[in-house]
Design a protein around this nucleic acid. Structure first.
Lengths: 240, 240
DNA sequence: CGAGTGATTGACTGGTGTCAAACCCTGTGG
DNA sequence: CCACAGGGTTTGACACCAGTCAATCACTCG
């Protein structure tokens, strides 16, 4: 699957684009970049002049705290724009890194701005992309603040699995997710010991099993119930 | 201060607007609405055809959980657009309510879309507004997940005080903030008992004192230190 | 002046973070 | 081919933070 198709497939998941809009996107000047596991694409404080779309693998955004601790904010799969906000916010308030090997297509801001001035619908689609990001962040606030540990983890699994399924990046009942328990803990705000204990619990419930970078969903309905998962906030078209 | 000035003052805090852009905003059809304490402006699941700008008082966004519990996501002061995302996301994934008595100016989406198609810079400014929202959400994830209770509370106080100061809504060292301890707990993800104990602790540190709806900042530097507060993520112009 | 809401504080307990040890797996080098 | 190192995972022990519950107090409103 080529880069253009990945971009347009994702945008069409929530936005209507005319053939002129698609043509405009096709005319953009992409440059590809490969990233190794854990490699930073952008660091907190940077002032990038380009934004990227994930083409393969996973990316994540994270905050670096004064103590050196990390807080993962979101995970991104092919089609996502993990730093679209840099288009209008000069300085990065967080970093973006690869989770496992990944590749991205990057586009100069000035080209992007020209395109979305020429074709407002393209701008609206990317704007919507950033708004869905924000909705995901809101959900993460609630998830990490108001839900118990098993629900919290189940909810994250549900979200990632659902998004991946919708975009056709997960087959059947499993999802490749090359994160360590430490990273899972840094995303969910729990200590590694608790991450593991919670994982054991989810396994025992026969809802899902995460081990060595693979999430197996054994009982989707049960997993959703445990995580109180309702995909409205993802603002995607219905699955199937 | 009239509604138009509140809107443009806020947008100019982060975006450059030409006199034509300002004229475009002035031409918009606002309708004012008063809200009482705790009144919902929009509910989760609604599909509004208008968005609002806060004109006076405070507003908040919150999630409602299946259990009936609330998670406050953000607080909004005059000039903020607490539901701008509804412009491009049809269905509300969260609710917006008044915190204390408040008033808003509401604008039809179709009018707004017309304006920002006519003058892209207006659209970019509102887009930037939504991107700063997202940055605030990201910070909230980190705050509620990675920081200890006193730091967490101090950080929220810092953010609200800083934003209010920047927009000229706080005088000297105090800020009117008509929230109960329960609401504070529902924002910070802590039980009311802990909220109170943490409040006592902050008081004892002589950094800040919150009681009966008033936040008194006694030692700004110390409060920032406790909360690890760094305002870059707010993407506003420097204060003073 | 009573009712009701919110704030405050104490007692108790369970969950979760910290620490440590053991285990597993992979890759590397002797 | 095996020994070893190192990173990640798993598990147990333990202490303590913070949630729950309850009682009291403060204040406002009718």
């Amino acid at each position: 699957m080529d880069a253009i198709r990945i971009v347009t497939n994702k945008l069409r998941e929530h936005s209507r684009l005319s053939s002129e809009d698609i043509a405009e996107i096709k005319s953009l000047n992409f440059s590809l970049r490969e990233l190794t596991d854990h490699e930073d694409l952008i660091r907190q404080g940077d002032e990038p002049d380009r934004s990227v779309v994930v083409i393969s693998g996973w990316m994540a955004r994270y905050h670096l705290l004064p103590s050196g601790a990390r807080q993962y904010l979101s995970f991104h799969m092919p089609g996502d724009w993990p730093d679209a906000q840099a288009l209008f916010l000069d300085r990065m308030d967080h970093a973006v890194c690869a989770v496992g090997p990944a590749s991205v297509a990057s586009i100069q801001h000035k080209d992007l701005i020209r395109s979305l001035t020429r074709r407002p619908a393209v701008g609206f689609a990317i704007w919507r992309e950033t708004l869905i990001d924000a909705a995901i962040f809101r959900e993460a606030i609630t998830n990490n603040s108001a839900r118990g540990k098993p629900a919290r983890m189940a909810h994250l699994f549900c979200e990632l699995f659902y998004r991946a399924r919708t975009l056709g990046h997960a087959r059947d009942d499993q999802l490749q997710l090359p994160v360590s328990l430490i990273q899972l803990g840094e995303a969910l705000g729990m200590a590694i010991a608790t991450v593991n204990r919670t994982l054991v619990e989810l396994r025992a419930s026969r809802a899902a099993d995460f081990r060595s970078g693979t999430l197996m969903v054994h009982n989707w309905g049960r997993l959703c119930a445990i995580g109180e998962f309702d995909p409205v906030y993802l603002h995607l078209k219905k699955q199937r």
